[in-house]
Amino acid sequence: MKIWKTLTMTAAALAITAPAAMAEWQPRKPVEFIIMAGTGGGADQIARLLQGLIQKKGLSPRPFIPINKPGGSGAEALSYIKGKEGDNHTLLVALNSFYTTPIIQDELEIDVTSFAPIGRMAMDTFLLWVNTDRDDITDLDSYVATVQGSDGTWKVGGTGSGQEDSILTAMMEKELGYNVTYIPFPGGGTVAKNLVGNQIDSTVNNPSEQMEFWRAGNSKPLVQFNGERTAPFEDVPTAKELGVDIEYYMQRSISGPAGMDPEAVAWYQNLFEELFNSQEWQDYCESDGLTCSEWISGDELAEFHNAQLQRHVELIETVGADAITSK
C-alpha cells in the first residue's frame, strides 16, 4: 500500500511540475554545434572553448557536441543548416565565409539572413604572418618588395577559396600591386603549421591560430588589419598607419537554422549572453586579440549580418570573384 501511495504522490507531483517545466524551453537532446571550418582554426577553438564552458558551468541540460564541417569553404556546413530548417537542436558557429560562400557559390541557394540570429561573440582580427627565418622581411615594405620580385610564385596559405582570408589576400594583391599563388588548406591550424614548416611563404591567420607559434618565436606578424592596434600586438602597425587602405574584421557569431522556435532562440540567446559576459570568455578575448566589448543579438545582429552581406557583395565585386576562387 505504501508503495502505491508513493507512486500516486509522485505522479501527482509530476503532473503539477510538468507544465511548469514545459513553460521554459530547454534542449531535449544533445545540441549539434556545427563549425564551418576545420579543426585547430579560430572558429574551431572558439566552439570548443564555448562547449567546454557550457559544460563546466552547467548551463545546458544537454551537452553541445562540436562537429566540423569544413567542406567547400563552409558550404558543407551551410547546406547542412539549410537542411535543418525548424530544428531546435542545431547551431552554427559562423565566421565570414557565412557571407562570402553563399555569394560566390550562388547555386547553393543559401540565404543566411533567414537563419536565426543568436548572438555575436566577438570580432576577430587578421594579421599578416611570415616565418621568423625570413630575415630579409622585417616590415610591410620589404614584404611587398620580396613578393613583387617573386613573379607570382609567392605562396600564401589559407583556409579555402572564397574564405575571408582569400578575400583579404585578393584585397592585398589589388592594393599592393602584386600577384601570389593561393593554396587552400583544411583549417587555420594546418595553415599555421605549414607556415612554421616553411611549406608556404606567408598567411593572414587570426591571432589565435598563430599565437603559440608566435610566443615560441617561430612566426612574426608584419601588419594588422584592424582600425587601431589591438592587444597583445601593440608593436605591430595597422595597414592604415602604413598608408594601405585595408580594414577587415572577422565576425564570430552563433546562428540557428531558419524557422527555429522563438522560445528556443530566446533560450540560446540567454545562454550565449551569459557566456559572453563570463570572465573566462572575456579573458580569452583579451589573450587572443579578439574584440569582445559589445554583445549583439536578435534584430540588431540580423541588421549587422545584412550590412556585412552587402559589404562583402561590394568587396567581391571590386576584387573580382575570379581573383578569389582561382578558377
Partner: peptide
C-alpha cells in the same frame, strides 16, 4: 607540441586542454 590534432579524437582532446587552461603548442 604544435597544437594541431593528428586525429579526430585528439581534436576533441585539444578542446579539453584549452578549457583546462593549458595552451597546447611548442611551449
Amino acid at each position: 607540441t604544435l597544437g594541431i590534432p593528428g586525429s579526430p579524437t585528439t581534436a576533441i582532446l585539444l578542446g579539453g586542454m584549452i578549457i583546462w587552461g593549458l595552451r597546447p603548442g611548442p611551449l
